[in-house]
């Protein structure tokens, strides 16, 4: 129960700046928790596909992800904050992706 209270506290601090308007109710909490679990599960399953590149790298990546999840949970509130409609944020990620693509495709292939 202690864990649940802690989680609700985190959610309230993220989603309910104005507690009168945005009450963090049971259904909201459960949907955020399920999103959290789905994120972890699917990222871990997706990490298994690294075996096609190199099995050793996959083991490192999966263990690293597990440790990461242990320390940074809950992730969803952070992701929600990061994934906002701020233009500077979007542009930063767009340019970052462009740089990654340029580097990977120019130097990383063959």
């Amino acid at each position: 129960m202690n864990m649940y209270e802690k989680l609700v506290q985190t959610l309230k601090s993220t989603f309910g700046q104005d507690p009168e308007k945005t009450l963090v109710n049971g259904s909201k909490t459960s949907s955020i928790v399920s999103a959290e679990l789905v994120l972890m599960a699917s990222v871990l399953v997706a990490a298994l596909t690294i075996r096609l590149v190199s099995p050793a790298l996959m083991i490192v990546a999966v263990i690293g992800l597990m440790l990461l999840f242990m320390y940074v949970t809950p992730i969803m509130p952070k992701l929600y904050k990061e994934h906002n409609d701020d233009f500077n944020n979007m542009m930063f990620y767009a340019v970052l992706t462009l740089a990654i693509f340029a580097i990977v495709f120019y130097w990383g292939v063959f």
């Binding site: 929600y80 906002n84 409609d85 701020d86 233009f87 500077n88």
Partner: peptide, 11 residues
Amino acid sequence: SATALLNDKKL
């Protein structure tokens, strides 16, 4: 200012 105009804080 872009930070004032294009920053939608109303989540």
